[in-house]
C-alpha cells in the first residue's frame, strides 16, 4: 500500500494530461463530426421543405399559366371576336373592293 502511494506522488500532472490528450482529441473529433453531421442533416431537411414548398408553388404557377393561356385562347376565339366586333364596335366584313392589295 505504501509503495503505491509513493509511485503516484512521482507522476506529474502534465504527464497525466499528455496521456489523456489522445482520448480527449478523439472525443472532440467525434463531437465535431457529430455536430457537422447533425447540422448538415438539419440543413438537408430544411432545404427539403423549401424544395417541396417551391415545387408546390411551381405547380400552382404552372397551373395558373395554363389557365390564363386557356382563358386568352377562349377570349380570342373568332366567334366571340366577331360578335363583339359587330355588336360593340359596329364593324362588318369588308365589302368586295374595299380591300386594297399592296404591290409587292
Amino acid at each position: 500500500m505504501s509503495v503505491l502511494v509513493e509511485s503516484k506522488r512521482g507522476v506529474s500532472f502534465s504527464v497525466i494530461l499528455l496521456e489523456l490528450l489522445p482520448a480527449a482529441l478523439l472525443v472532440m473529433l467525434f463531437a465535431g463530426v457529430g455536430i457537422v453531421h447533425v447540422t448538415s442533416r438539419v440543413l438537408v431537411v430544411k432545404v427539403g421543405y423549401e424544395l417541396s414548398r417551391l415545387d408546390q408553388e411551381n405547380a400552382t404557377l404552372e397551373r395558373d399559366r395554363d389557365r390564363l393561356k386557356l382563358e386568352l385562347a377562349t377570349m380570342k376565339s373568332p366567334a366571340r371576336l366577331e360578335s363583339l366586333a359587330r355588336a360593340e364596335l359596329g364593324l362588318d366584313a369588308p365589302k368586295p373592293g374595299a380591300i386594297v392589295h399592296l404591290k409587292k
Partner: peptide, 16 residues
C-alpha cells in the same frame, strides 16, 4: 419519391 413527415408534409430529399 418523397418523404412525408409526421404532419404529412412533403419533404423532398432529392433534387427535382
Amino acid at each position: 419519391s418523397s418523404v412525408r413527415d409526421a404532419k404529412g408534409r412533403k419533404l423532398f430529399t432529392e433534387g427535382r
